[in-house]
């Protein structure tokens, strides 16, 4: 048997020699067998509002038991969690928290959801998969916040147990993904289409970075692609950039840029367009039919909810999402 291993989890597809660790830092070839280095060893565990993920159309005002291990499949220069995403698992402080204990802790803390988040959950695929299977048996929902850089086969297998996904669509050019993230755009678009096909509730986050991906024409083109391939009901969150990691030379995103992005998205036909990382009326949900205020938010707090049985209280229109 060959001792070389080809990892087929993400599009990078690392070819690993004996005792070589993958680019994600989370998988190792030992004697021709690939092992996870992070199974049951989260470096981050927290209880968050589901709105923080951000999910705005998925069980609003509930809490999510959130876990992450070290490692990532990309190397974004603007990463807000680079201390753990760009770290080796042996360099982070890890807990011993097996899958059944994750579910038990979530239930003890009245969390409706377990969210795989903070770093890139693809790198702890086996841990997430086993946890999600147990959670499904106990009627705890599973959600993922991902960069979408995962191959189709593992994604379809995971989708059997995933209730919702928030995918970072970081830009709409191959150049950005190549230069800024060390990846490719095409696999991320494929992931979005696959998740939609598999019936996983989908929301999209786009971090708007001054000078790098804030061109209104490209944003509109991206939104038109979303409408055509995923539908007009997919909520999109334009998130405000703040200088982090290797991009501290850039300023925070101007408010006007975010408002322009929102206008471009609505012009393209998207019905639910939000602005994140910034307080404004654009963090509220309005009915696409009668334009009445449905969910009022201040940051992560829901202050008003006018959705009943998945419908607008005012006009009765069905509101896309998972409401209870």
């Amino acid at each position: 048997m060959s001792k070389k291993v080809l990892c087929e989890l993400c599009p990078t597809e690392c070819l690993l020699e004996d005792y070589q660790v993958g680019g994600c830092r989370a998988r190792i070839n030992k004697g021709g067998v690939l092992y996870s280095l992070v199974y049951g060893k989260p470096c981050s565990v927290a209880i968050d509002p589901i709105e923080k993920k951000p999910f705005y159309h998925f069980l609003p005002a509930t809490t999510a038991f959130s876990i992450a291990t070290a490692g990532c499949v990309l190397g974004c220069k603007f990463c807000q969690n680079w201390q753990i995403s760009q770290a080796k698992p042996e360099d982070t402080d890890n807990l011993d928290l097996p899958p059944d204990e994750v579910v038990r802790q979530a239930m003890l803390n009245n969390c409706k959801t377990i969210t795989y988040t903070y770093t890139e959950p693809t790198v702890f695929y086996e841990y997430m998969y086993d946890t999600a299977k147990i959670a499904r048996n106990f009627n705890v929902k599973n959600t993922i916040h991902t960069c979408g850089y995962i191959n189709e086969k593992p994604l379809r297998e995971l989708s059997k147990y995933m209730d919702a996904a928030d995918v970072d669509l970081k830009a709409f050019t191959e150049d950005f993904y190549n230069r800024i993230c060390g990846g490719r755009l095409k696999p991320v678009l494929d992931t979005l289409v696959t998740l939609r096909q598999e019936g996983v509730w989908l929301e999209i986050t786009n971090l708007v970075i001054p000078t790098l991906n804030d061109d209104a024409k490209t944003i509109k083109k991206m939104c038109m692609w979303i409408v055509k391939n995923l539908g007009a009901d997919v909520p999109i969150h334009f998130s405000r950039f703040f200088p982090y990691y290797k991009l501290t030379n850039l300023p925070p995103t101007p408010v006007e840029t975010l408002r322009d992005a929102r206008s471009a998205a609505m012009d393209a036909g998207l019905r639910y367009v939000y602005i994140g990382n910034m307080r404004s009326e654009a963090e509220n949900t309005y009915c696409h039919h009668c334009k009445q205020l449905l969910i009022a938010r201040i940051g992560y707090a829901v202050t008003q909810n006018n959705i009943s049985g998945g419908r607008c209280k005012f006009c009765g229109a069905a509101i896309p999402g998972v409401w209870g």
Partner: peptide, 14 residues
């Protein structure tokens, strides 16, 4: 105990 990973294969490719 180390956890065996999913989605990989042995290869002789260079």
């Amino acid at each position: 105990e180390p956890k065996k990973a999913m989605f990989w294969r042995n290869t002789d490719e260079a």
